[in-house]
Design a protein around this nucleic acid. Structure first.
Lengths: 167, 167
DNA sequence: TATTGTTATACTCTATAACTATA
DNA sequence: TATAGTTATAGAGTATAACAATA
């Protein structure tokens, strides 16, 4: 049913095409910070996953290993706050890292708390991951000058800092 | 078991705290483009959802309505390419928008193809959404000058454009 | 009572394979 | 054969509620 259009088509390509996505006019989407962030995030995370595939490390795992490495003895809840993870969701992430002998839970003075430490293997791995990450970062930011890269991060952090408490 | 640490702790707060997340040292994460993007995306999307909550519109739905509005008669697969959605995942998104009478599928000359059009209600809604989006964009970019905002988007688009075909 | 970690659960987003109807 | 849309399914990521152990 509905065989009377298909002549209404034929009108496309009127505006300049997006530099990000070919095939159709994105309208004002290409002028939005949020849309630019979303597209960049997809590309960067895809690149990250491929870069770390050999070590089976996802971005969140790299974050946890990095933060615990920089803060030995950190509590689970503190890692969650630092990285913006819900503590309920952190349990599974941590279970896998512990199963792989990269992180240890140790009970603390406060028996409710688990203090987290990288194992020897975890410390060794994070050093290698750090090198991979340097290459990853270089490639992701290949289109930016060093100054631009720093300014980009600062601008993004200014956006992140805002709390929008009223909404 | 394991009651002999908790004195190893007490060492935190050694480096400058992150401007994004309080509570622990993020290590080098705060110097990474990918991490800055991730944090900004979370904040921006949360703000978006709250801004559009009254209309029950998610970012992806706003994208579809905008692209179809700017390209009447676009095929489903073309919308998918433009927005980076898998066509399998687009079916459900479109079903809901059609159920809400905002978009119509019309069969095209090629009977395999669905051409997409905003309904009258869809056109009316997208105009109102556009106004909400302007306020949303203004608030998200409140910490940036107009020039910075434009440069931020251009830098993010440069990152998105890269294909990393070798990885 | 409040906090930490945990379990269970649900919803969204993303990804792949296989089916159908059309070309 | 190939393409457009669809279905089914699985995996992450994210969110909330409720529980046990401990403070």
């Amino acid at each position: 049913m509905d065989n009377k259009k298909a002549k209404l088509r034929r009108r496309r390509h009127r505006r300049a095409r997006s530099t990000v996505s070919p095939g159709a006019d994105l309208g004002h989407l290409r002028d939005l910070v949020g849309y630019a962030i979303r597209r960049a995030q997809i590309v960067v995370f895809r690149h990250f996953r491929k870069s770390f595939a050999a070590h089976k490390i996802r971005p969140i795992q790299y974050g946890v290993l990095t933060v615990v490495g920089a803060n030995p003895g950190l509590k689970q809840s503190e890692v969650c706050t630092a990285l913006g993870i819900k503590r309920a969701n952190f349990v599974g992430i941590l279970n896998e890292l512990e199963r792989r002998r990269l992180i240890e839970r140790r009970s603390a003075k406060d028996q409710r708390v688990n203090a987290l430490y990288l194992t020897r293997a975890g410390k060794s791995l994070i050093e290698r991951l750090r090198q991979i990450n340097k290459a990853h970062e270089r490639e992701v930011a290949a289109g930016l000058t060093s100054n631009e890269r720093v300014r980009l991060i600062k601008m993004l952090n200014r956006i992140s800092k805002a709390t929008y408490a009223d909404l």
